[in-house]
Design a protein around this nucleic acid. Structure first.
Length: 190
DNA sequence: CAATAGATCATCT
DNA sequence: GATGATCTATTGC
């Protein structure tokens, strides 16, 4: 598992370095191929920019924990908390390349194609069985965790604007594995 | 293939 | 009471 020190760094660095790592939950695992960085008060698109509230307290807490919330009343989004304790910052996991537990993920998703299983933040939480029950859990131990690839492949990182936000649209805080077919729909263009 | 509508609820004002 | 870090189905070229 990645140690806490991995997460205790600038959010943008953690977002880049999570690419190529493997997210595991129980029997299911996938390679992270797309992330987005959400910073502190300077980043109007980030939940934490509004300050410390009951909801955002996890983002202000110690690094290496999961921040899970419900979007649009329907889907969950998984973030990993970065920065030292007391400093806000988190990384949204946006897409996975399915590796293990594929049958189980496909069943939860009711999706036929491999490319539709986890190519989006709401899709991957549904595939992996991640809900608000995982909000605040420590990902440096336990069943929800991130590990290194045993034989990491070389790849290029592409930085683009983030998806689906209304503020700070111009900042290049979305990162993806260039050319990977499992990134979310909007990223495949270009 | 591109654009759009609707589902649906926790959070904050 | 409005809003949103989404997804799917459906419509229209």
């Amino acid at each position: 598992m990645l140690p806490r020190a991995f997460y205790r760094r600038p959010t943008e660095v953690v977002a880049r370095e999570l690419l190529g790592k493997i997210l595991r939950h129980g029997n299911c695992a996938g390679r992270i191929v797309e992330t987005e960085a959400y910073l502190g008060s300077s980043d109007l698109a980030a939940h934490a920019s509004r300050g410390l509230t009951p909801r955002t307290r996890v983002i202000f807490g110690p690094p290496g924990h999961a921040y899970v919330y419900l979007v649009y009343g329907t889907y969950h989004c998984l973030n990993l908390v970065a920065e030292p304790d007391g400093t806000p910052g988190c990384v949204l996991i946006r897409a996975l390349e399915p590796l293990e537990g594929i049958a189980e993920m496909r069943q939860r998703r009711r999706a036929a194609g491999l490319r539709d299983i986890a190519s989006g933040p709401g899709k991957l939480t549904q595939a992996m069985g991640i809900t608000r029950a995982q909000n605040g859990v420590d990902v440096t131990r336990g069943s929800l965790t991130v590990i290194r690839d045993r034989a990491p492949a070389r790849f290029e990182i592409e930085a683009t604007p983030r998806i689906g936000i209304r503020h700070s649209v111009e900042r290049l805080l979305r990162f993806l594995v260039k050319g990977n077919p499992f990134v979310s729909g909007a990223g495949r263009l270009g």
